[in-house]
Design a protein around this nucleic acid. Structure first.
Length: 275
DNA sequence: CGAATCTCCTGGAGGC
DNA sequence: TGCCTCCAGGAGATTC
């Protein structure tokens, strides 16, 4: 599933497109999380891709042309992937959206479960509801122990759910939430507002290193993550606890436990992680 | 405001 | 071989 490292890996894979001009847009199945704006088929051609950035798990593609411009916002949801292909490459089932460039490359979005999104913003507008109330980027300096403790100060819910809340910090999904808490030796059910500053410090450090490790490995591969070159990520080799229920802890050899927290599975070692 | 629940959707796995 | 159920998962919407 795309989490932040996978999304960033995808963004980097799209960088060769910067500077290219759009030839056409194909919308095969507009019903994603929200409808894909039909006007893109008319308004995007002739515009030039000026830059690619990312906020949380949103990929922001900045376009401008003679008299118009805006931002194509892409979200991979849970099963989305984007590939760069030759425009003659036949579309397959679940290939919902193409942006073809004049050099013959096509950006192709495939999303079987259709939880992803393709939206159009008139400008990089931080007032857009999807972007306006997001927490800090986990790998940036604004995400630190002091900030985290403050952000958690009125939250009594389990720490695992708290760090998966994009208003607290963005980009920490189900996999890396469990992995980061294991590395920080914090039990996932610990009430968020009871963490000491020292434990917040440790958690911040481990969230950063877990995400950075995954990024260095080219993204994770829970089931079906593939980069823009079609190659799978390899971080899954390194999971300490995720989806390892009953298997021995890599540190103490006790069996890994799993519980449900907020409709999500959480994995932990009851000996290595304390409340 | 916080917290819990519901919801979107499809494919794959397991049971019978 | 087919059908049924369950599960996975991001995050906005809804409800209390």
């Amino acid at each position: 599933m795309p989490e932040l490292p996978e999304v960033e890996t995808t963004r980097r894979g799209l960088l060769p497109l910067v500077g290219l001009v759009v030839k056409s847009v194909t919308i095969r199945h507009p019903r994603l999380r929200w409808p894909i704006p039909q006007h893109l088929a008319k308004t995007l051609p002739t515009q030039t891709l000026r830059g690619l950035s990312r906020r949380a798990k949103y990929i922001l593609c900045e376009f401008s042309g003679e008299s118009s411009g805006g931002v194509l916002l892409l979200h991979l949801g849970m099963s989305g992937r984007i590939q760069l292909l030759d425009c003659n490459y036949p579309a397959e089932k679940h290939d919902h959206f193409d942006v073809e460039f004049t050099d013959g490359q096509v950006l192709r979005l495939r999303d079987p479960r259709r939880f992803g999104a393709v939206l159009w913003l008139d400008n990089i507008d931080t007032k857009h509801p999807l972007l306006s109330s997001l927490g800090p980027e986990p790998l940036e300096a604004g995400f630190n122990a002091k900030y985290l403790q403050q952000a958690l100060s009125r939250k009594t819910l389990a720490i695992k759910n708290a760090i998966m809340d994009g208003h607290v910090v963005v980009g920490v999904g189900n996999i890396y939430a469990s992995e980061s808490l294991f590395r920080a030796r914090i039990h996932p059910e610990t009430p968020a507002n009871t963490l000491s500053l020292k434990r917040c410090e440790k958690l911040v450090t481990e969230i950063k290193s877990t995400l950075q490790d995954a990024l260095n490995a080219g993204g994770s591969s829970l089931r079906d993550f593939f980069g823009t070159d079609g190659q799978p990520g390899y971080f899954q080799q390194g999971y300490f606890v995720y989806a390892r229920t009953g298997e021995p802890c890599k540190v103490c050899a006790q069996p890994i436990k799993s519980i449900r927290l907020g409709q999500r599975s959480a994995f932990y070692c009851e000996y290595c992680q304390q409340r």
